[in-house]
């Protein structure tokens, strides 16, 4: 057995050099739980999947959002290793009862990627509501998009678990739409040069926290980790051992018998 192992080791090492697969990045799928902010009553789940090509596949399913309305959504945070998290109501520094997008930024960081339905995904598209997904009449929102690696800020994939998905849009006065009567004009939109946008449209409704991770691509079936080539070895050894013992016994019996016969003849 030992000899066989040693003999096999050389070609095996050579094969290894040829067969070593190269792993650019680990494909993995980060699972995110979307938790309500500002008592929005909304909830959701998202997955961020890093593909082997370096792209990012995003899937979001949320419910309880303002119906028939666009919801601005972003990945917030940075790749500098800052420990961002989701804010609680203590982040409401102006005390109007709502954590605004700006008030939340110390907790979840600045806009890192804009999760638009098409086109640009940079921070510049943060309030591009015409390219943001719209909730259906029941307040359900579905979003699926793959953003090419080249369009992602450097380090996005490596820091996937450090980023926070935030979905914006609340309904403070409970009339199923964004209006100035709810919370007035959006200070965020105004600072971006857009006037007349309701604060309701930009206040966050959901903030995502990483809840788990999975394989990015699941292999088919089981794993072929064995060819059975040593499974009968025990039987072979037992067989050989048994035969050897039988032969030994046979020799002893024959020898003793012969000497007994010889002794009688000699006598």
């Amino acid at each position: 057995m030992r000899i066989r192992r040693t003999l096999l080791a050389v070609p095996a090492a050579a094969a290894l050099l040829l067969a070593t697969p190269t792993a650019a990045l680990a494909d993995e799928s980060v699972h995110v739980k979307l938790l309500e902010l500002n008592n929005s009553g909304a909830s959701g789940n998202a997955t961020l999947t890093a593909t082997s090509g370096g792209d990012l596949r995003i899937s979001i399913r949320s419910t309880g959002l303002v119906p028939n309305s666009p919801h601005a959504q972003h990945l917030h945070g940075s790749t500098t290793g800052m420990d961002f998290h989701c804010p609680d109501m203590s982040a409401d520094t102006n005390g109007n009862g709502y954590v605004s997008t700006e008030e939340g930024m110390p907790a979840y960081g600045d806009i890192f990627v804009s999760l638009t339905t098409k086109g640009d995904t940079s921070k510049a598209s943060g309030l591009a509501v015409d390219r943001m997904p719209t909730a259906d009449p029941e307040g359900n929102l579905r979003y699926d998009r793959t953003i090419a690696g080249a369009d992602l800020p450097p380090g996005t994939i490596e820091h996937l678990k450090d980023l926070h998905i935030v979905e914006h849009g609340v309904d403070a006065n409970d009339n199923d739409k964004y209006d100035l009567a709810g919370l007035g004009e959006s200070t965020l939109a105004k600072s971006a040069g857009l006037s007349g946008i309701p604060e309701e449209a930009t206040d966050p409704a959901l903030c995502g926290m990483v809840s788990g991770a999975a394989a990015g691509s699941v292999p088919v079936g089981g794993v072929a980790t064995g060819d059975g080539s040593t499974r009968d070895e025990a039987t072979v050894w037992y067989g050989a051992g048994g035969l050897a013992l039988l032969a030994a016994l046979g020799i002893v019996v024959v020898t003793r018998r012969r000497s007994y016969v010889l002794n009688r003849v000699q006598r």
């Binding site: 064995g226 060819d227 080539s229 040593t230």
Partner: peptide, 9 residues
């Protein structure tokens, strides 16, 4: 491997 090409894995 549990075993492969005659060797225990």
């Amino acid at each position: 491997h549990v075993n492969y090409r005659g060797a225990d894995g």
